[in-house]
Design a protein around this nucleic acid. Structure first.
Length: 368
RNA sequence: CCGGAGAUGGCAGAGCGGUCAAUUGCACCUGACUGUAAAUCAGGCACCCUCAGGGUUACGGAGGUUCAAAUCCUUCUCUCCGGA
């Protein structure tokens, strides 16, 4: 499948690293491109708070500002607000039908993010793929709570699409006309771990009509996180089910997915788009993804290599002998270990380049 | 040579009679990270026993006081700061 955007066509499957604050941490955009990554994700909420979308607009939009001319997806900010609210419960941090309100922990400033403002911001940013504001659910919350989140996500999706049409001066018919050039719109299917709710969410969102459908709500930064309480098999079963709910040939986007094994599983199920912080965050923490047999902790289709550990102190080999990235062709495990251990940014960069390349290679295997 | 201060676990540095196998930081070891408020977080870090727990050595060396000493006394060694 090819997904056509205002900044080029995206072959699927695709993995898009997160440049949440406007940067893929530790690496430059040319580094990202050289790794074989062709699309990136950035976040509405963080950019709005750190820069302001009007500012970005004045700078000529995200592509010009970043120096990145390939597709950019902007996340709605819903997940970030939700995660923030759950970490810091107080009377200002809450979700209502109007939107998500919260205090910025950095400035103490009160903000309200609504389906409409999220669209306005993303429009100012000039992204190619835009995500409507949704409400993730805590998986083990009460059923009524999950239902409420699904219904709110639907209502917000409707409002967001209306706003999107208004901002672009489009009618519903224009939206469905493939000849009309515009950013693509993603709606996120919620419903936690409840199959009925997932179906309700998928059906109602598809009735409104979007370009891409996302799988949302997993995982949350919560001690009761899904992954701790449910077997991976359940997660996979749910992804299988939700994937089957999306009609036609619409692209399917697994938000926040996942480990290389999760990715591979989802690709085989027919999911197309993925983003996760794992390769970049883990790289900074010294966890490298390598081919099976080359690391110290085996998973189904790959190994993890804990580069900071003693076992690599005298290891002159590249991180992964099958990888041709800058890291694997220029430094030994022993030297990378040293760089990461002293918190040297060069080490963060090389490790991130490697993990990004690992994800890119994984994806490339499944492109026809 | 005289006067003063001090010697604590890899390092720095608390503790100054029992609640001290010893606060804390760094270093070190291990693990976790899934729409990044994570270059973060969690655990470990004298030795032995199978965990709870118990047992051995330990706060420069050697003696001593005390039911009990890293903490008090004597002495030795070494370091630092002043004065000759």
């Amino acid at each position: 499948m090819q997904i056509s955007t205002l900044h080029g066509s995206i072959p699927t499957p695709t993995f898009m690293p997160d440049a949440t604050y406007g940067a893929v941490k530790a690496v430059s955009f040319p580094d990202v491109a050289k790794s074989g990554i062709t699309e990136i994700v950035t976040t509405t909420l963080h950019l709005e708070q750190k820069l302001g979308s009007e500012y970005v607009k004045k700078q000529g939009g995200l592509h010009k500002f970043f120096g990145w001319d390939r597709p950019i997806l902007t996340d709605s900010g819903g997940f970030q607000v939700f995660s923030l609210i759950h970490r810091n419960p107080n009377k200002f941090n809450k979700i209502s039908d109007a939107g998500a309100s919260f205090l910025d922990p950095a400035t103490g400033k009160y903000s309200l993010l609504t389906p409409e403002t999220s669209m306005i911001i993303q429009n100012n940013l000039g992204s190619d793929i835009q995500v409507v504001l949704d409400e993730p659910v805590v998986h083990d919350g009460a059923l009524s709570q999950g239902r409420e989140a699904v219904e709110r996500t639907t209502a917000w999706a409707k409002r967001a699409k209306d706003k999107f049409l208004a901002l672009h001066n489009l009618t519903s018919a224009d939206f469905d006309n493939p000849k009309v050039q515009r950013p693509l719109l993603v709606a996120v299917i919620q419903g936690g771990n409840n199959f009925e709710l997932r179906k309700q969410s998928a059906d109602s969102l598809q009735e409104i009509g979007f370009d891409i459908y996302g799988f949302g709500g997993l995982p949350l930064h919560n001690s009761k996180s899904w992954k701790n309480n449910a077997p991976t098999g359940f997660h996979h079963e749910l992804l299988h089910y939700v994937g089957s709910l999306v009609h036609g040939d619409k692209p399917k986007y697994g938000l926040g997915i996942g480990t290389p094994d999760d990715l591979e599983y989802c690709i085989k199920l027919g999911w197309h788009i993925f983003d996760t912080v794992l390769p970049t965050r883990n790289a900074r923490h010294g966890h490298l993804y390598v081919s099976s047999g080359q690391g110290d902790a085996p998973y189904t289709n790959y190994d993890l290599l804990h580069i900071k550990t003693q076992r690599y102190a005298d290891d002159q080999n590249p991180v992964d002998s099958t990888c041709g990235c800058e890291c694997c062709t220029t430094v030994s495990r022993a030297y990378l270990r040293h760089l990461i251990r002293i918190n040297e940014s060069t080490g963060h960069r090389l490790a991130s380049i490697h993990n990004l390349r690992f994800y890119a290679r994984l994806i490339e295997r499944f492109r026809s």
